[in-house]
Simulated scan of single mutants.
Amino acid sequence: MDIFEQLTLFVISLIANLFSALAGGGAGLLQLPALLFLGLPFGVALATHKVASVFLGLGATARHLRSSEFNLKFSIFILATGLPGVVLGASIILQIDDRISQGLLGILTLGLGLYSWFKPELGQVLSERNRDLPGLVMGGLVLFFIGALNGSLTSGTGLFVTLWLVRWFGLDYKAAVAYTLILVGIFWNGSGAITLGILGNIEWSWLPALILGSLIGGYLGAHFAIVKGNKLVKRSFEVITILVGVSLIIKSLA
């Protein structure tokens, strides 16, 4: 790539990851289509995007760990239930036509954004719930399913984790976004990147610009989320979720 294309990748990555870190997901809305538009095949673009997304998690982590408190047992639970789904999803995505699943995912994502929009008090106050065995089993099964989507379709599935942590486990938006960016951003996306890298290919020459944009965008987005609080994070989540949903529906019809 020439210097102009690298600069274009950096700017796209910076913007995509800033809003993703603010909303708790959605970097694939801009970043993955940009890689496809610039000429990468879908499997290579997906694997390359996954690697870059790990650095979104690292950038956000650098900011969140300074001001957020994390429950270690709950973090391990999210990883233990979600990671097997990520590996499963990444293992099968390169072998199937994803247009139908993208359309269905788009409809569901759009529905999540509208649901949050019409629930103004949702996720504004931390109120932990469903931490008993039945609640954890149900919550873990849904996280496994979201993990499978994360490993396969990448665009906006972090948003699913964010809303599920808010709706089912009672986290506020700011806390849910922090968990999503650190655990999904680093560990889920890292597992997906490794699996896709083994089964497919990664365009290593494109990664420096993507990684730099992911790190800076992740840090800045996390900073704004912490400083501005739940109201801005919730509204950002809703806008990004609706855009991701519409984008996936359009992509499935193309």
Results as ranks from 00 to 15, higher is better:
residue 94 L to D: 12
residue 74 F to H: 07
residue 117 W to M: 07
residue 67 S to R: 13
residue 110 L to W: 01
residue 54 V to T: 11
residue 113 G to D: 00
residue 67 S to P: 04
residue 102 Q to A: 10
residue 91 S to D: 12
residue 97 D to V: 04
residue 47 A to S: 03
residue 66 R to W: 13
residue 81 T to L: 03
residue 84 P to I: 04
residue 97 D to A: 08
residue 86 V to C: 04
residue 90 A to Q: 03
residue 56 L to S: 06
residue 69 E to T: 15
residue 129 R to N: 09
residue 82 G to C: 02
residue 63 R to C: 06
residue 101 S to F: 12
residue 74 F to K: 02
residue 116 S to L: 09
residue 73 K to M: 12
residue 90 A to C: 08
residue 84 P to Y: 05
residue 47 A to P: 02
residue 102 Q to L: 08
residue 130 N to Y: 04
residue 115 Y to F: 09
residue 69 E to S: 14
residue 61 T to G: 08
residue 111 G to M: 04
residue 133 L to S: 13
residue 108 L to Y: 02
residue 119 K to C: 11
residue 130 N to R: 02
residue 58 L to D: 07
residue 94 L to Y: 10
residue 85 G to H: 01
residue 61 T to A: 13
residue 113 G to I: 01
residue 57 G to C: 12
residue 44 V to S: 08
residue 130 N to M: 06
residue 99 R to V: 09
residue 118 F to T: 15
residue 73 K to V: 12
residue 87 V to Q: 03
residue 131 R to Y: 11
residue 94 L to W: 15
residue 43 G to H: 09
residue 101 S to W: 11
residue 125 V to L: 10
residue 93 I to K: 06
residue 83 L to D: 00
residue 117 W to Q: 05
residue 94 L to C: 13
residue 102 Q to G: 07
residue 128 E to R: 13
residue 127 S to N: 14
residue 101 S to R: 07
residue 55 F to S: 01
residue 66 R to S: 12
residue 68 S to A: 14
residue 43 G to D: 15
residue 86 V to T: 00
residue 91 S to A: 14
residue 117 W to T: 03
residue 67 S to A: 13
residue 53 S to A: 11
residue 110 L to P: 01
residue 74 F to E: 05
residue 77 F to T: 00
residue 119 K to M: 15
residue 124 Q to C: 14
residue 86 V to G: 01
residue 128 E to L: 12
residue 69 E to A: 10
residue 114 L to T: 04
residue 134 P to N: 07
residue 68 S to Q: 09
residue 91 S to F: 15
residue 78 I to A: 03
residue 101 S to A: 14
residue 108 L to I: 12
residue 122 L to T: 08
residue 75 S to Q: 14
residue 132 D to Q: 02
residue 77 F to I: 00
residue 112 L to F: 04
residue 80 A to Q: 09
residue 81 T to E: 05
residue 71 N to D: 12
residue 57 G to N: 06
residue 65 L to Q: 11
residue 128 E to F: 09
residue 115 Y to K: 04
residue 84 P to A: 06
residue 78 I to L: 10
residue 100 I to D: 08
residue 63 R to K: 10
residue 131 R to L: 15
residue 131 R to V: 08
residue 107 I to D: 02
residue 134 P to E: 06
residue 70 F to R: 02
residue 88 L to R: 04
